[in-house]
């Protein structure tokens, strides 16, 4: 009886870690993006109150912190596919589940913080185009610098997921 309970737990614990990791990857990166967009949105609303024609430029800049949420979503989907929770079922051990579950860390942490700071950068760039609309190109490059670290987090998470052998 006891052996049967332990065996069932071992079978389910691996996938449980993967689900937890996927949830945290999507949750943290998505929250960071929402926060960053919110910050940039305040600046966009401020300049559009006086000059509604700035909508398109402001929209492009305030959308920049949204990419981290997409990266978190991609890592979550990739982890769930790899563990067979969606798609073709595969057997995942506890340690494989822990490893797959831990692959969320780079994108969740880098995505969360870089999205908030990118939101602040975007807000500053929105202020820049409110006075100098001709500087739109430079205004986009500045917040994009924060994106580099979210991309690195995404790459490390994907490499980790790819490196774990299942089955």
């Amino acid at each position: 009886m006891m052996e049967s309970i332990i065996s069932t737990m071992a079978e389910q614990l691996g996938p449980a870690f993967v689900v937890l990791g996927a949830a945290l990857a999507a949750g943290f990166a998505g929250s960071g993006s929402a926060w960053g967009i919110g910050i940039a949105n305040e600046a966009a609303a401020g300049i559009m109150t006086e000059d509604p024609k700035k909508f398109v430029s402001a929209l492009i800049l305030l959308a920049l912190p949204g990419t981290q949420g997409i990266y978190g979503f991609l890592v979550a989907i990739f982890a769930l596919l790899k563990a067979g929770i969606i798609g073709s079922p595969v057997s995942v051990t506890v340690w494989q589940g822990v490893a797959l579950g831990a692959a969320w860390l780079p994108i969740a942490i880098a995505g969360f913080y870089s999205a908030i700071w990118q939101g602040k950068s975007s807000a500053a760039s929105i202020l820049l185009i409110s006075k100098r609309p001709e500087q739109m190109g430079k205004a986009m490059i500045l917040p994009a610098m924060c994106e580099t670290y979210a991309v690195l987090g995404l790459l490390v998470s994907l490499l980790m997921l790819n490196g774990i052998k299942i089955g």
Partner: peptide, 13 residues
Amino acid sequence: YGYAVARIRALEP
């Protein structure tokens, strides 16, 4: 103050 400062920048001209 994000909104308020942005509005000030737009009022500067």
